[in-house]
Design a protein around this nucleic acid. Structure first.
Lengths: 342, 342
DNA sequence: GTAGAAAAGTGAAACGTTTCATTTAACTGC
DNA sequence: GCAGTTAAATGAAACGTTTCACTTTTCTAC
């Protein structure tokens, strides 16, 4: 590995001069600057990032911490994050759950973090965040000047969905819940149950974990009984897909036998047969917003602006009665889009 | 930030002793070791990764370089990579295309790399690879002791698909190509055209770029003419989806009007209506294989074992004539699975 | 020509570790 | 109680940068 020392020697100049020339800092003559750059080129020199970061105490890197790559969910968020990063001179580092996540976070190998991994504890995040290490959290609500919670507006979408069901006359409702430690699941469930409560409806809750298979198994259990719900709300699309699969295997169809609604609007949702009613989230923009605010904070100490990411109910075939001739991607709007019609 | 110096002082011991204690190296008494660890705990000490890496010249990190997150394609590969990394004490760093990719690669911020990003040039890879920096490439074929090409066995799947079409009597075929700089596209196209050649068929090629929209637009162009092909082979699923969308808009159906085959078996393919015939690849295992060999090389200098990742044709509704009553996920096998029946 | 200011260039310290070469302390067996 | 060994602990150098404080050179205006 060739070092800056080699470059300096080759250009017949001091190490300092070489450093200034390479970084365009300090004060250096045009002639020598050229000479140094040529030497660097010739020797195929690339600065050692560790030495540099060690000295500068800045990495110019944003770290994104997610739990896993699968599930079609993070994909668009990551794309949004990536697209905005491309416009900056920051680097991006994505780290799935593991020892490494902890390490990288703790070691401050990044200048700021975006956290979307429930395996990282609240205490961890709170302890880490500081003026010099701002953190955006997308899956929890924490109070701190150095932490920006960017959360989905779950209540909005859930209320629209509830209203959609209620307006069509569905009264026997069930809720299929996702992972218990999930903020989003909690909020979706709380909202749905609260709405039901307001209409004096009792809603049984089935505990799943956001996976397709958990939705499938819950459905199997439910379908055993002869007292079927009229509609189920699943806390995410994966479970809705599993639920529908079980229904199909039992010879039942949505929405005729049971109406089904999911959450997230993953790509599959609109292509399934029947297409799945769900709640859409602007994930791409979610990602860009996170990066924008984070970099703004790092560069200019612009205070964080907490905001909710809007959600929107998308009625599709799986929950619309007597409308079987739609296109599979149709977005027919039945009710008003406002949140709380009562 | 608390440094090892603070820890040493707090434990009343030399810096060296602290380092030995923390790393479980050197020779250190059990009592002092305990004392140091307690001090570290108490001061909430975390070693500075840059200083450490600078000294050790090892990062214990594997870098994965992909072009982007979207497209459902990398997802499973990344999951495979991640799952295996979890079993090791290596860290994982995923880097989408950008300046950063180049930088991180050049700066050797990782101990080994997995490259799946055509924006990184062959020369770059060749120049970088060395005994101390092995590289797995998944999207090109390069010869070097320090480079492991792990490529799809495109010919296998394409031949099966061609045979499937031919056996059903399709003779007017078209090929929708992906990005020109793609190894996989080149190989898929070459194989398909060679097979056609052997049967004295001329196959028009339409140049796309792997995106859904390019498939859509090519289809629109083709559908203008009144001389439609009987079947089209798209170099990936995204383009097949676009192609089918255009067909639907023209009131045409696959396979009745035009049979359509894709490549990759992305999750959507089986759920589309009609389900899309495609060529499946074990992406998860592809990822694990890459990591396994890479770490094996790094740790034990185990020579790379080049191998082809098998592919398999999956006949579905979009290319099977007169079989309309299948389940949308059915995997009916029509022909023998062997590659070259002639 | 010269004083003073500006520009160009340099030496050395510092960043926080690890590790080599040494020293010091603690055991052995006799 | 001592020579010889082994175990425990240490000081200092090194990793490759950046940057502060300083020196040397070049320019400017009179």
């Amino acid at each position: 590995m060739t070092t800056i020392r080699d470059v300096a020697k080759h250009a017949g100049v001091s190490v300092t001069a070489a450093s200034y020339a390479l970084n365009n800092t300090g004060t250096i003559g045009e002639a020598t600057r050229k000479r140094v750059l040529e030497a660097a080129e010739e020797l195929n020199y690339h600065p050692n990032a560790f030495a540099r970061n060690l000295k500068k105490r800045k990495t110019h890197t944003i770290g994104v911490f997610i739990s896993r790559f699968g599930g079609s969910f993070y994909e668009e968020i990551l794309e949004g994050i990536h697209s905005l990063i491309l416009d900056t001179d920051y680097e991006l580092l994505v780290c799935p759950e593991s020892r490494s996540a902890r390490r990288i976070l703790l070691h401050r190998q990044v200048d700021g973090a975006i956290v979307f991994d429930s395996k990282i504890s609240d205490e961890q995040v709170l302890k880490l965040a500081s003026r010099h290490f701002p953190i955006v959290v997308m899956d929890r609500d924490l109070q701190s000047d150095f932490i920006l919670p960017l959360l989905l507006d779950n209540p909005q979408g859930v209320r629209e969905a509830f209203w959609h069901l209620h307006q069509q006359g569905f009264r026997k409702l069930s809720f299929v819940a996702g992972a218990m430690d999930s903020f989003d699941n909690a909020e979706r469930m709380a909202t749905f149950l609260a709405e039901a409560e307001r209409h004096n409806l009792h809603v049984p809750v089935y505990q799943g974990n956001f996976t397709e298979i958990s939705g499938y198994e819950i459905a199997r259990a439910i379908l055993q009984s002869d007292d079927l719900p009229e509609a189920v709300f699943c806390a995410n699309d994966q479970m809705a897909i599993g639920f529908l699969r079980a229904m199909r295997e039992h010879g039942l169809q949505a929405p005729n036998h049971i109406a089904v609604i999911g959450f997230d609007d993953i790509p599959l949702a609109r292509y399934m047969q029947p297409s799945i009613s769900t709640i859409g989230t602007p994930r791409f923009e979610w990602g860009t917003t996170a990066v924008r605010q984070l970099i703004d904070f790092i560069e200019n100490e612009t205070p964080f602006q907490p905001q909710r990411i809007p959600t929107r109910f998308l009625p599709r075939e799986s929950s619309i009665l007597n409308v079987h001739s739609q296109t599979s991607t149709g977005e027919t709007i039945l009710g008003p889009a406002s949140s709380d019609p009562s």
